[in-house]
Design a protein around this nucleic acid. Structure first.
Lengths: 208, 208, 208, 208
DNA sequence: AATGAATGAGGGTTCATTCAT
DNA sequence: AATGAATGAACCCTCATTCAT
């Protein structure tokens, strides 16, 4: 009995993942998820309290991972590299060394948590993540010491750009090689863009 | 009666804009929109044929504007500048001259059209816009002559980043000055990121 | 003012007639009727108490005419002919002499009253008319003295056949000549069918 | 559960049949049908995809039967008799041999299909059936070789009369014996009427 | 008299959740 | 544990009728 139950539970989790990923929380149907998992609507509720409970189960480890990653709770997640290389090729090499842990954080479930959570109590997830990224970005800029006008706003926008790039890749790329490549490209792009922006401001691009 | 009618119609358009902007087309409720506009559900249908009709009314001029802009149908929309300046400060100055027309295209309603249209016949709007941007981007890169591996994939990602940046600003910024400033920043960032990316690749950042 | 009012009223009556005839009472829309009459929804209610009131106005004279006709209230309606000729050609000639009064009763509005009244208080009109016809038919048969098993049932069916034929003609034929011709054919058919039926029964066609 | 489910489904089919029969498709309410079946609106949709689906389920076998009957697809349906007897008593005897198959086609559900389908995809059913009957009728007349002026119009009217008679019986008669008797009467009446009409015309009843 | 805005009841349909078996 | 029937709230939409101007 126990064994059987785990199989069903696993299938429900997978089906939910697929549906939430494809359609978002609100537009997913419990009936369909149960069907995809090879079980029935009613039985769904033997495994999960409700639709949102399934969502949380799918996503809960990602939240912890994300938290660990961005707050450096665990040694495996070390974000020092972010602060180092400002020269393109070197940066890319540096990234290569971290691609594993990037991939550990930026997963399909991460996507679901951030981009498919409208209608759940995590509907603010995007904001939370953006805040994290923004703070990091501001931290870097402060270290470098450059003055950017309306730093908070700008940092918010950049954080958003960073996140959207990641989400785009997770949504649209399914091969592992492609994902790694695009993440690398994205980060390089992002670094260069940021540096360029800082330079631009330092040379007088005004708020108005 | 004429006057009163226009007021209600206006309020419905505003309420619709607010709801679509906040919740998207599908998750908006006609009842709620009518309520926000200070009228009743039934009366809504004296002003608009149906929910989608309201959406179209809100958005229809934006589509025309976008088309004019990206296809250069009108003299007022001239995109030559995009191809010119590759140096940060000069680029920013160039943009300044175009900020009006950028703002004319990138409006709150543009956001609704592109980001809130799921469930309407415009549900492909994002794809359409992305395709436009991607083609422009590829055009530029071809001119410059650099080889980017997996150009189509990369261009797709960059186009997405460009668009998301714009959408982010429209979603999160309400003051006019802030919007202009962030659009400028975003474009500068984007230019520099692209240049950096191209350089990075030319210096050997491989697909794998 | 009075003049103008009459014109509108007339147009509403015409439009109602057209709509009821085409779509029936229930499926007709007051808005559309008003529109067809060249006026507005609201104004409709200055001329008629409600949708059903319009229906009654359209149809009320037909009811009286029908009553007069079948009960011989007026000299102009004389149904003696029905009882006379049992030989086809003679019958047809006899009918020719009455076609005017038949046409006076079997009008487009008669059709509306009988076939389009569902949803009004005249929804039993068909039954009423059928009852009339049935009684007449039974009267004739009694005179002739033949025994038809289950006379009431049979008479009901025949009455229905008679009525449906009339209604069919009114619905599908618009030229005056065609209508007259078909009415004549229908009545001849009906007479011969009835005679045949009576004969058939007299020769032993049993109830079972 | 299986058993119970079948009961409800059956009740819904019965309630639907009753309502469609009484009120027609358009004027029937799913809410009411569900209520009559002793269940709730929502539950209706556990049994049928939608209102029209219920209609189709009620009616689908009738359509096949009708097609088989009129096209002679199956040996059980043999319409040769229609062409044989022109003498009342013989005709009645001949019909007696076919009353079973007539009853198999002309059912309460046939009535629903033909007379209550407005609003469904079968809204043309009446036309379809009339066309069949008309062609058969014209076929007979051609065989006999008589000339009827305006044959198509007349045949249309007669076909309509034939069909309406059947529909009348199905609508108003509920006992089996009564139905059989009336169908027989109706067909006899119809035969004699047709013969009489042909004779009448041959003797000079003109179009005008 | 005329307008058409406003109302409210009712239509069909979907779906998360509960419940009986 | 498993089934899927049952519920009820919410969805979009239509329309006869009333009301204010």
């Amino acid at each position: 009995m126990q064994i059987k139950k785990e199989i069903i539970r696993e299938k429900l989790l997978e089906a939910g993942e697929r549906e939430f990923f494809e359609r978002g929380f609100t537009n997913s149907s419990v009936r369909k998820i149960a069907g995809l998992a090879g079980t029935t609507l009613g039985n769904f509720y033997n495994y999960f309290k409700n639709k949102e409970d399934l969502f949380k189960e799918i996503v809960k480890e990602e939240i912890i991972k994300f938290d660990d990653f961005f707050n450096g709770h665990k040694d495996e997640f070390n974000t020092d590299w972010m602060k180092v290389e400002m020269e393109p090729v070197a940066f890319c090499r540096a990234i290569d060394g971290y691609s594993d842990q990037l991939r550990a954080v930026f997963t399909r479930k991460f996507y679901i948590w951030v981009a498919c959570s409208e209608g759940t109590e995590y509907s603010n997830s995007r904001k939370v993540v953006l805040e994290f990224i923004k703070e990091h970005f501001i931290g870097h800029v402060m270290e470098v010491g450059t003055k950017i006008p309306a730093l908070d706003n700008t940092a918010g926008m950049l954080a958003n750009g960073f996140l959207d790039g990641i989400l785009y890749i997770l949504k649209n790329q399914s091969e592992e090689a492609g994902i790694n490549y695009l993440i690398k490209s994205h980060m390089l792009f992002f670094l260069m863009g940021s540096i360029g922006l800082i330079e631009g401001y330092s040379e007088g691009v005004a708020y108005d």
